[in-house]
Structure formats: C-alpha cells, structure tokens
Design a protein around this nucleic acid. Structure first.
Lengths: 343, 343
DNA sequence: TTTATATTTTTACGCGCGTAAAGTTTTATA
DNA sequence: TATAAAACTTTACGCGCGTAAAAATATAAA
C-alpha cells in the first residue's frame, strides 16, 4: 500500500500514468486494451489497491456486468445446489451473479424481477415458480432483459429454456419399476407447487399407457413448499387406512418421497426390493439427501451441472451477441437412473 | 400509465409538481416529508410508474439502504432457513438485503466482504465460517462497516454477536440422555468445519464432568461440508468394527446425525429408546429434515426466529445511531429439547 | 526506414441524483 | 390575525465514471 488511498479514477490515472478513458475501457473489459498496458494497469491496481466505484460505473453503462439468478425457493437443497453451480459459471466468465430466492411466493418473484430491472442486469437466469407465476409480468420482463429460463418452462417466454427431459426420466424409472415388480402408482400433490409436477404426471400416464398398465394417481392434499410434511401426512394416512393401491410408489419428487419413507418407517413398513419388504418407493431429482434416507432412495438424477452450464452459456452468448435469439431454443437433458435401496 | 415514460427525477419533478430536492428527500426516507406531500408523491409514483435510478442514488449517498447477509454455506438448509428469515426482517424495515453464500471457502468469504464494500452497505449480518475464517481481514472489514456476527462468534470482532447458548443446549440434551439411559459419547468431526463445533465439544465435556461421567469423544475423519457423508462413513465403520463405546451417541449437529442414522439403518441396527433398540442417537440444531429421519431425530432446537430478529434489530439500531456501539453485546438464545424417536 | 493501422491521450460533455444555501410558502400555536 | 417554526422551492454545484472526437503516439507490415 503506497501512502494515501486513491479516491477515484482520475487520481488513479495520474499515479498510474495511464489516461482515464483507457482505464475506463480496461475496467469494462480487460482484454480491450493492449497487453502491455493491461499489465501496467494490473500492477498499479495491485500497488494502489484501487477498485472503481461500482455505482458510478453502472450508472452510465447501458449494460452492467450483473447477471440475476432467480430461483423459486432457496431453502430447497435442489435449488440451492443449482444456484451455487450457476454462480460459479457466471463468476468464471467475469460477470457478477446476483442471487435471489422467491420463497415460493409469486409476488416476491415479480418483485425480484423488478428489483433486478433497477440494477440493469446484462441478463437473467430464471427458474420460475411455475403454475402460480404471473406469466404476463414475467413475459414483459423478458422483453426488456435477456432471460434464459431453466428448470421450469413457460411456453414462449424468455430467449431459451434449459431443463430436464421429464418424459425420458419418468419413462426410465417407470420402465425400471415395471420390469422389477408391480407397476407403480404416482404420488404427487393435489395442487402441485413443484414447477415440473404436471409434466411428470403426464409423462407417468404416457409411460404406463405405453406399457399397457393402468395408471394410478395418488394426490396428497396440502399446499406450499413443505413437501416432506405433505408426503409424510398422506403417506401415514394411506398406510393407516390400508388404501395403497399397489406396493410400488413413484413420487413426483424426492422431497415427497423422503416424507413418504418417513411415514412408512413410522408405520413399521419395510421399504425396499428384497423379500420381507412391503413397499417400494422411488423418487425423482437425486436430491442431495436422497442417499441418506432409510432405505436409501432409488431415484432419477437431474444433471445439475449440465443444466447450469448450458443455461449460463446460452445467456452469455445472447448477451455477447447483443440481440435476441432468432429462435427460442429448448434444451432438455436426460436423467440417469440412480438405483439405491428403496426400489 | 400516463403517456410517455419518465426518464429521471427532474422530469418526475415537473410532472408531479414537486421539487426535486423534496423528491430526493422522500426517496431517501418517506417519513421525512410532510404527510400531505408524501401522499402527493405516492400518487404520482403510482401514476407515472417512476422509480429512481438505484446507481445514481447510491453513488452520492455515503450510506446505501443495502444490508449484506453472508452465510457460510447456502446449500445447508440450516443457513438457508436463517438467511430467509433475516431477509424478511431486513425487508420489513425498508432496507434491501443482499444475500451471499461463502460455499465453505474462506477466500470466498473475504471476496464476499470485499464485494459488499463496493456496494457501500449500511451494515452487514455475518455468519462467519469459523475456524478457517481469515480473522484479520474480517476484523478490518468490521472496522469499516457496521457488522453484527451471528451463529458463530469471533471474539472481539464486529459490533455484536447473536447466537445459541451451546453450553445450555448441549447441557440440556446431555442431561436428558443421561437421565434416560447410558451417558452419551460425543460424535464430531476430527477437524470440524461447523463453526460451533468446538463450543459444543467443550460444552459436552463440561456437562459430562458435572454429571460425573467419563466423556467419550468419537472423531470422524474427513473435511468439507458433506457432513451427512462423513457421519455415514464413520458410523458405518464404527458399527462394522463394533467399536462403539456406548449405545448412546450425541452428534455435534443434525447433519452428522442424519448420516449416522443412515449408517445404522443400513447395518440393520434399530435406533430408538424402546426395548429392542440397539442404539440411541441425538443431534443438535433441529435441522429442517430432522423430523423426517428414520427414526425421527431427537435434537435441540436453535431459535432461528429469535436469532434472526435480534441480529437484524441490533444492526438497525447501530445503523440508525450512526456510531459504533460503546460495548460489544453478546446475546445467546437457549435451545429447546425436541424429543422424537431416536433417543 | 516508411507507411498504414491500432492504441492511447487530451479534451470535453453528460448521466441521474445528493445536497447545501437562501428565499418563499405553509402550518402550527397562540 | 400575527408570528415563529417547519416544510418546501429555487439555484447551483459536485459525485465518479462513460464515452465521443480529435490529436498524438506506438506498433506492425511492407
């Protein structure tokens, strides 16, 4: 640290011997100046510990280096994990991730987008709440800010969509379950909050039809994001009333399955495939906790890493192109069967 | 929406018939203007859909309305939950929460603080990584920005600390376990990443001494934040080698316990209190998932809501006072025993 | 070395808002 | 209705940086 602190770019220009416009250019994009000057600037930055004022920078730029990341529910480990991965990718490309969770509330989702608009982000990665999202407002937002949707699609909204192929992944696990035992019933929420729920239900119905089995839907009452609790309550009720239509349950997502497994355990029902097991339970997502349930949860993984990578890359291409995509690309990644103890 | 869009406060002043300085005052603090003018402004804001430019606002203010919230690991539901609660409290008081996770990495923790400094926050709520935190850098930061530590204390750093009383909570569960069965062994990580781990170990040793029992420490190898995996691995090993020193295990936190329970289940060991149970397992934190383990996890709750409320309130008082606290207040909330199936 | 080209410097203005100072109007209190 | 206090308006300047344009310089190609 060399003497007193630099207060602004003007001062930094004089002590570093580089003109302010060049410095400005450098801070906007380090590769836009000659190699030799870049090195001089970097040395001076190091020496004087100078960082430009973010607010003044962003005020005058038409586009900032901010990229918004909005997920429906940060307390859900699935979204926390994918958000973390996205942050990494965004940082690596020299942008600043701004992470926002919607806490499951559509108003907050819109408020998040409005707050993002205030910070003039270069682009936004949005996993919408789904069914309850305010489509109109989101659509309006996407017209102003380059946005890539991930996890949950809203038809025609945003420049692109990246997610999982629910048809394939549900098909995969239905096939597996049918091959190794009774055809599964599908366990879901009556009015699902989970964005992909309807897709999965449809995929289940299609898969069962394809295999010539009669589909069985079990719909648990309850709202909100306490999936485990909902799975637990309805699971307990089904077991208590002995109204389970089959011995194989495919849950719409792992969190429901976690609750269901807990209910089965409490009821003394042995879950798994071996002899002596009363029930098979499978999930979907390969939730971080699914390998520690009792028994460990058989499920289909979503390719977090691939989804995050593709979303970030697509958005950056869009930003650097500087123009809307000519067509709305939808990328679906395939799920992998994760065979564990529960089915 | 009245015709064309307002581009700046100047324009908004002319269409609304209120002078710019007054508008500026209003946007900085709505209660600082007369009631009648506030209503006029609010009507105009509504009518013209005007919002001041955040960057221009913050550039000239010495203090922004931003409050940083930094937690060690966002993918840990415990921190996700407390972060969510903090966000709520901050929003309610008219500030803007800026949420950052350190992904368990000390460099990232420091980088988060540096990025926060760039946005000139009014204050920061920081749950440090603990042992691995760069104390010196954090201390330097706290001297520049009013900071309240929560969850994990760093002696003398920050204006205040809010957390749980580990002595009390560990004492509580040790008492309970001793009263209802064999004295517990303490299960923890060899080199704990969890910020409160050492406090809890010390509290365990003290409690056992007080009750005239010989303390038993079990230290699992492994690093990082994959606590469940570490609990699972070491749990499996202990059961396989039959080296468990007692039938009662108190885990340093619920995530370790979740892994341990999974190991016990896989090994066919029945966990719980009744006859026919080979093992009792207890945790600490009342982790969101602890009520869905098999069996459900007996644990000590941390008072999330109280910790969040007190932290936010303390910081806001500090900010509004505009001066450092005359003494560093430490507030500890007591844990409650949550009796479930596992012990 | 000369010449064409790419970078940098100089100069100058603008962004949208904070805020101080002095003058004017409104409101509260009597 | 007079009077003091509070709130507002007018005027003016500054914040730290983006960026355009013209001139000066460095680099690469011939």
């Amino acid at each position: 640290m060399e003497g007193k602190k630099i207060r602004n770019m003007e001062e930094f220009a004089s002590v570093s011997g580089i003109s302010r416009p060049t410095l400005s250019k450098y801070f906007n994009d380090p590769t836009s100046v000659r190699d030799s000057t870049r090195k001089r600037i970097e040395a001076a930055v190091e020496q004087y510990d100078y960082r430009p004022n973010l607010y003044a920078m962003n005020q005058n730029r038409r586009l900032t280096k901010n990229i918004g990341i909005v997920v429906p529910y940060l307390a859900d480990p699935f979204f926390a994990e994918i958000a973390r991965t996205l942050e990494d990718h965004v940082l690596r490309t020299g942008y600043r991730p701004v992470l926002l969770g919607s806490h499951g509330r559509p108003e907050l989702e819109i408020e998040n987008l409005e707050n993002l608009r205030l910070i003039k982000p270069a682009g936004v990665l949005l996993a919408p709440l789904g069914r309850v999202s305010d489509r109109e407002q989101i659509e309006a937002f996407c017209k102003e800010v380059p946005t890539v949707l991930f996890d949950a699609n809203i038809d025609g909204v945003g420049e692109a969509f990246v997610g999982s192929n629910n048809d394939q992944s549900i098909g995969l696990i239905v096939d597996y379950l049918c091959r190794t035992g009774e055809p599964p019933a599908f366990f879901e929420m009556e009015t699902p909050t989970n964005p992909n729920a309807y897709k999965r239900r449809t995929a289940y119905l299609a898969a069962m039809e394809r295999l010539d089995h009669k589909p069985l839907l079990i719909q648990a009452p309850g709202e909100g994001w306490e999936f485990e609790e909902i799975g637990f309550q309805e699971g307990s009720r089904l077991v208590r009333d002995k109204t389970l239509p089959t011995d194989t349950i495919l849950c719409s997502n792992d969190r429901l399955a976690i609750g269901f497994l807990s209910a089965a355990y409490e009821a003394g029902l042995r879950v798994g495939l071996g002899p002596g097991c009363a029930l098979r339970v499978a999930g979907h997502d390969d939730h971080p906790f699914s390998r520690y349930t009792c028994p460990t949860l058989t499920t289909v993984s979503q390719d977090y890493e691939a989804i995050a990578k593709k979303s970030a890359e697509t958005l950056l291409q869009l930003i650097e192109a500087g123009s809307p995509a000519d067509s709305r690309e939808e990328t679906l990644f395939e799920g992998r069967l994760i065979m564990r103890g529960s089915a």
